[in-house]
Design a protein around this nucleic acid. Sequence first.
DNA 1: GTAGCCTGGTCAGCTAGCCTTACAACAAGG
DNA 2: CCTTGTTGTAAGGCTAGCTGACCAGGCTAC
Lengths: 163, 163
Amino acid sequence: MTPGSKNASDWIPLPGLLDIAYESLFAEFRAELERSEYGDIRPTHGCVFRFVQDEGLRLTDIAERAKLTKQSVGEIVDDLVQRGYAKRIPAPDDRRAKLICLTERGEAAQAHGRKLFAKVEKRWAERYGAERIAALRELLEEIAAAEAPFAVPELAHAEPAPA
Amino acid sequence: MTPGSKNASDWIPLPGLLDIAYESLFAEFRAELERSEYGDIRPTHGCVFRFVQDEGLRLTDIAERAKLTKQSVGEIVDDLVQRGYAKRIPAPDDRRAKLICLTERGEAAQAHGRKLFAKVEKRWAERYGAERIAALRELLEEIAAAEAPFAVPELAHAEPAPA
DNA sequence: GTAGCCTGGTCAGCTAGCCTTACAACAAGG
DNA sequence: CCTTGTTGTAAGGCTAGCTGACCAGGCTAC
């Protein structure tokens, strides 16, 4: 419980534990995704599916939220365009900019991915306790809203705004 | 709460949340480490500091626990040897093998790192609630023991085996 | 207008970190 | 010893990200 017991060498740093959980969970997701008809989507492509919705998003915005450079995201988008998951449409209000948005196939893939994530989470809820996983999610959402607001505009509500 | 509310687009997949927490926590750690006298230690080197203790560990064993190839770990160890953090000593029982172990400086760095991790965790406990962080750790330890036993021999005891 | 700066995106080239293939040295059982 | 498996190394390749340089288009101030 107390992190102060760090002299005992069986204390594992929190990031290590988070990493294991992440890897394991993500591996379950990947395994299912690869067996699906969207098996050519690689982890890297995630930054697009994760942030793009509806009307699309500018390259710059994706890059900011994903904490990547514009160049990197550009490459990833190129790849997704080539595979038929995304397209660039000119931004209506700025002739320099393009809106990255998903094709029909891209939206189907996104929906499928979300369903898979939910499925895996449910599996973990059965394995480790629904309430504990719910509490985990709740805490992580709070953390995400506080630590990386730029990445989770969805959670823009409950600003903690400490005095 | 229910993952079934995935049609609402403000539901964020659990791996995404885990990733944010990990990155944020790790960034705090890195920031402090870089300011210390061990600033030349890079994230990659972690796999050695994470697993090597006391009498040392074989390259093969590190590779297995870290889920890396022997070659990759070999390179990392080379680097650490060059920087004076690690050394290879011939294994007493097998003339092919070498035990990777930490130098005095390496052990100091390891101890310092653990202290930093504990410090950051404590900070989070204050920020998000000591009990919630404790519960988080408890759950993650259980998950780690179940999902990656090879990586956390320290948690070999409490097999969950739920009824 | 148009000069000068900012911004969205792209092109080219590089690095870090990890992998695969191939192999030499040693171990261990018949 | 001879075969088979294991420990570590050497050499080369690949992916995902980076930096720097740039152009086209927007924005402000003369």
